[in-house]
Write a protein that binds this DNA or RNA. Structure first.
Lengths: 130, 130
DNA sequence: TCTCCGAATAGATGACTGTCAACATAGACG
DNA sequence: CGTCTATGTTGACAGTCATCTATTCGGAGA
């Protein structure tokens, strides 16, 4: 019957989070949800923040470590961290004077799996350039 | 004449494009470049468009196949396709009356690799200790 | 308690984005 | 050649975003 094979992914199916988008069309709700996460990544400062946090010693970094490498003000960094946090990409905790941030690997893994192509490991951009 | 036909992305370091961001901090230029691609993905309509194209029979789809499932007008679809094309995520070609779009797997693979976490792939060779 | 410092919030502003209606263009078919 | 259909482009408008300055909050230490 109709509930057998849904042509869309999304909904409450746990597999919805991990199936590559090249396999089957994305559902509307899933697309809205995923777009929020990609939107959080769609800023150079946030991308660098995320990689700075992830690659920092111990897998976490305090804000004081993050404001230095950027040309923007501290409130702006704080704002970007809030965006990353609300997108579910990082976690944070206050420990005494400083606030520490760390990456939530599951969220990155979900997006990574979504973008995976069947021939990721076999395909090289050859001649396709037009 | 450019003998080297490698589509260089970002810097001259080939590893800059494919190394997971959790390994080492992203450079500023690479972050700007990558943010453009994520920005192209940061819209529900474009995400669904991409998955529709990728999962379509033959790996490509004409615009006439893409305007149906959405509530937005055809010019808006055309606009989103242009964004995806300029981000280097899809290619397009006119064949008679219709224009066909297809996904460029290398671009998706690049982003997928960037988001990969050590936990995601249990195939971390030896560099786990940090 | 008072003061200092790290971090978050509030409000404002300029820039960008998504969307549509209207128009332009490219090819097919009589 | 003329017309119809399928796409792309332009211009305009509303909404959102990134960034700043000024202020507030939370904890540490004298």
């Amino acid at each position: 019957m109709s509930n057998l094979e849904l042509p869309v992914i999304g909904q409450d199916d746990p597999a919805a989070c991990c199936s590559p988008m090249v396999r089957e069309p994305l559902g509307e709700e899933a697309a809205v949800d995923l777009a929020k996460m990609f939107k959080a990544l769609a800023d150079p400062v946030r991308l660098r923040l995320l990689s700075l946090i992830a690659s920092h010693e111990g897998g976490e970094a305090c804000v004081c470590d993050l404001t230095g490498p950027f040309d923007v003000s501290q409130p702006t960094i704080s704002h970007h961290l809030k965006v990353l946090r609300e997108a579910g990409l990082v976690g944070s905790e206050r420990r005494g004077t400083w606030v520490y941030y760390w990456v939530l690997p599951a969220a990155l893994a979900r997006l990574s799996a979504l973008l995976q192509t069947p021939d990721t490991t076999a395909t090289v951009p050859s001649g396709g350039a037009r």
